[in-house]
Design a protein around this nucleic acid. Structure first.
Lengths: 192, 192
DNA sequence: GACCGTACTGGACGATCGCCCAATTTTCAA
DNA sequence: TTGAAAATTGGGCGATCGTCCAGTACGGTC
């Protein structure tokens, strides 16, 4: 037996899934009410029945995707036995994503939309901050110097690399992760 | 004396400047013909007189901005006497830009639009590739290990850091650049 | 002064936009 | 069985979209 409320919640979820897909395909500000409804297989009016505005659908979809990814990568980070092992999960994203795949594009679209929507910025910032804190704790536990700043650089570098490699391919993933691993080492001394 | 052709070229430039501003303010796909014309102070019809489409205005404005920035940072890189001195210019962007300023947002918008426009991707990729090559040459000349991959990581990290810091502030610029400087050092050995 | 071509104007065109809502269907409690 | 509540439909509203184009203004050349 499927209750009315359950079907309603399922339609809501379908709209959110459609939003995540369409943000990546068309771009944040190009997603329309009717596109969402068609992709979700429902009537156009349902969008404004379940959500207060199109922007609200996009924000909830983006924040949900961010929380999902963090909930997936977070535990792996917390269970790591070494710094190398922990950041291996982070580096794995560089192989799993090309920078032009739906997930990568969705996240960059969300970052940009966050510069124009304070509620979105706060929600995404909270997820990023929590992930950064987990990584910094791991780095700190294994004597990596300056764990907070290193965690910030590592997470930001992964996103930056995804976007840059999509624009112009460079050295392959193994070479890049080898460079990033230098950040885990104590700094020997300056060079000229 | 101002000729007709000169005034025409000046209107074209005004439209391109307006495009750069509006992409950052509203987002790539939210920039319209009439918005461009109003910001540039010209009649709406002029947009499609000087350009074949709105997308063409946006692409030319974005590529122009990228070339301008590269033309400004490139020579400083080529003239550097040391790796530290060269990448100091790169790190300077972390202080000069907040991630929410028009320049930063314009570039990320352009990266995203490039995933949906092959001509834009090729043009931006060429600029990025040339800049990466200059930096790699500098790193190579000063015995930084794996110069190509390091140059890729450094340029990508700067963009990634701008976006991430806009979402959630972290350790300040000095701490972050100190971490990045570790990439210039030879790798001593692995850590557990 | 006559002519030509480029720069420019401003509105028309059909399509689509976000949002709204009266009407209808479906479900569940009384 | 009946009535209230929730889910859904589909089209209407005014606004805006990209593009086009007939017509105007005017510097540059004979």
């Amino acid at each position: 037996m499927v209750t009315t409320a359950e079907r309603g919640r399922e339609v809501r979820q379908r709209l959110l899934r459609a939003a995540a897909e369409l943000i990546a395909e068309r771009g944040w500000s190009a997603v329309s009410t009717r596109m969402l409804a068609e992709r979700a297989g429902v009537a156009p009016g349902l969008v404004h029945y379940h959500f207060s505005s199109v922007q609200a659908v996009l924000v909830e979809a983006a924040v949900g995707a961010a929380r999902d990814l963090a909930a997936q990568a977070g535990p792996a980070l917390a269970a790591a036995q070494s710094a190398e092992e922990g950041v291996a999960a982070l580096f794995g994203m560089l192989d799993a994503h090309t920078g032009t795949d739906p997930t990568s594009v969705l996240f960059v679209e969300a970052y940009l939309a966050a510069t124009r929507d304070e509620a979105l910025r706060a929600a995404l910032g909270a997820v990023i901050g929590e992930f950064r804190r987990l990584l910094a704790d791991l780095l700190d536990a294994h004597a990596v110097p300056d764990p907070a700043a290193t965690a910030l650089v590592l997470t930001a570098a992964v996103d930056g690399l995804l976007v840059h490699r999509a624009l112009r391919p460079g050295p392959d993933g193994a070479d890049v992760t080898a460079v990033l691993r230098r950040l885990l080492s104590a700094r020997p001394e300056d060079r000229g």
